[in-house]
Design a protein around this nucleic acid. Structure first.
Length: 465
RNA sequence: GGCCCGUUAGUCAAGCGGUUAAGACGCUGCCCUUUCACGGCGGAAACACGAGUUCGAUUCUCGUACGGGUCACCA
């Protein structure tokens, strides 16, 4: 039975890289009918604890539908799931290691001396003393090498002389991340560990710990970093590294999940050309063999494109609800237009991020004064003068139209053009410009006429000058 | 700097000894068309370099270069 865990620190909002780790971890567990996805909060650094961060983690995971089966809020057979509440347990295990000779008390740092040597090659004087207090350090073998199996990288080997006598238990009685991880992963029966590859070089120390305890290590799956560019990680300081950042920029959850899944993992075989994946499909198709060994540069354009595709798959009412959250104008327009559903339909086809909407529809609410040069258009064979003449000419016809729908308007105006030897494009361009004052609009002339309604269309057309 | 990991178009990437080296984003041409889009059909664009192994290397091995990670009482 597969048991995986996502083990974030409550230090702020959730980083995209962490979310991706959670996603892969979740997929792995859910591929097994009996699989269990555990949420564990690693708050052993009391100084970095941020109030509310745990709730932020819950919220983000829930929004993404990465539902955990065991965790601090719902419990489970291995509670508690918050490390600070397991404090005494780690101390017991650390002392056990001291008793068996795999760890020792160290007082070297008591004086605040940071130059203290710790590597086996320059072994710490405390290693051979019988101390009973201080931090507890792991006793790394003086020579030889330690290797471990990684599901992505294969066999990775480190000389023991490169490994620190790392601290297991801090002076405040809290375990270090590295120690708490080993103890908890074992106690909680975790079978697969997915984590960033910044842990690649500390993993041999984990295996030494597992060996000292006589425990079976889990399978390790190290995934590469998400980069901002070739040299820099997608950093929290960039202001666009958090899941929440993207939500507020108008990206929708399934698109974000889809995109980050593909940053570092790719489908192979029969589905190698598929690029749209729902969460359920990711669970179905995710495989460790498709994970990349090299860093991936985050590409916002690709995310935008994917977001647009996902938006187009939404039911109209769902799109309308999401769009309304992002656009004051849209909310203000609801109930005031002749054909609001048409506007929604047109917007859905051309929206990449929800934030795009607001400024694309402002003209529907208020027609601002605009530059007459907008009437000039080569392709439509239009100039300001020609446009005004056509608009004046068509006004009486507009008054007579009773079936005010985009389709009928299109037919009627097309017929009018051919009867009067008018270039259809020229008239439509003039109308679209007069109604919007914009070069780019959510729809064509007759769409806008339908959306705005007869009276407003006539008013705006008459106002054109 | 030591150690570890990596390197296919601008980006994400398929490939796992013999291929016309997929696909997507971006760029671009055309079609559709009442603008821009959406949709459809095309185009340009890549195996870091050098040695081996082999009948044959993008694929295997070793170097070089470049990039990343790590070397905390942070995770």
């Amino acid at each position: 039975m597969i048991r995986t865990r996502f083990a974030p620190s409550p230090t702020g909002f959730i980083h995209l890289g962490a979310l991706r780790t959670a996603l892969y971890t979740y997929c792995l567990a859910k591929q097994d009918a009996q699989g269990v996805f555990v949420l564990r909060i690693e708050d052993t650094d009391t100084a970095r604890f941020v109030d509310g961060a745990t709730d932020a983690i819950y919220n983000a995971l829930r929004k993404c539908e990465l539902v955990w089966d065991e965790g601090p809020d719902i419990g489970g057979g291995y509670a508690p799931y918050i490390q600070s509440e397991r404090k005494s347990l780690y101390a017991d295990y650390a002392r056990q290691l001291v008793d068996s000779g795999h760890a020792y008390y160290c007082e070297c740092d008591k004086s605040g001396n940071t130059d203290t040597v710790r590597k086996p090659s320059d072994k710490c004087p405390c290693r051979d003393k019988k101390l009973t207090s201080g931090v507890i350090r792991q006793r790394i073998p003086l020579d030889g090498e330690t290797s471990y199996q990684d599901e992505v990288y294969g066999t990775v080997t480190f000389p023991n002389t490169e490994l620190d006598d790392q601290i297991l238990l801090k002076t405040d009685g809290m375990p270090t991340y590295n120690f708490a991880n080993v103890v908890d992963d074992h106690l909680m029966g975790i079978t697969h560990v997915v984590r960033g590859n910044e842990y690649l070089s500390s993993t041999p120390k984990y295996n030494l710990l597992y060996k000292a305890f006589g425990w079976q290590p889990p399978k390790y799956i190290h995934v590469e970093q998400i980069m901002r560019d070739a040299r820099h990680k997608l950093s929290k300081r960039d202001g666009d590294a958090y899941f929440e950042d993207f939500l507020s920029k108008g990206f929708i959850v399934p698109a974000i999940i889809n995109y980050i899944a593909l940053l570092g993992w790719s489908p192979r075989g029969d589905i190698a050309e598929q690029e749209i994946f729902s969460l359920a499909e990711l669970v179905q198709y995710f495989d460790v063999g498709g994970l990349s060994k090299s860093p991936a540069i985050f590409d916002i354009d690709k995310l935008r494109a994917l977001n647009g595709k996902w938006i187009r798959t939404l039911p109209a009412d769902e799109f309308e609800r999401l769009a309304s959250d992002f656009s004051d104008n849209l909310r203000a327009l609801k109930g005031k237009l002749n054909n609001y559903p048409l506007l929604i339909e047109l917007l859905q086809k051309r929206t990449e991020t929800l934030t795009d909407i607001e400024n694309n529809i402002d003209f529907l609410l208020n027609l601002e004064k605009f530059d007459n040069s907008l009437y000039n258009n080569k392709k439509s064979k239009s100039t300001h003068e020609i446009a005004l003449e056509l608009l004046t000419g068509v006004l009486p016809l507009l008054e007579t139209i009773t079936d005010w729908t985009a389709a009928n308007l299109f037919d009627t105006l097309s017929a009018y053009c051919s009867q009067n030897s008018i270039n259809k494009n020229t008239l439509f361009h003039a109308l679209r410009t007069a109604l919007s004052g914009k070069a780019v609009t959510p729809g064509g002339a007759t769409d806008l006429m339908d959306i705005l309604g007869k009276q407003e269309t006539i008013n705006r057309t008459a106002l054109a000058k």
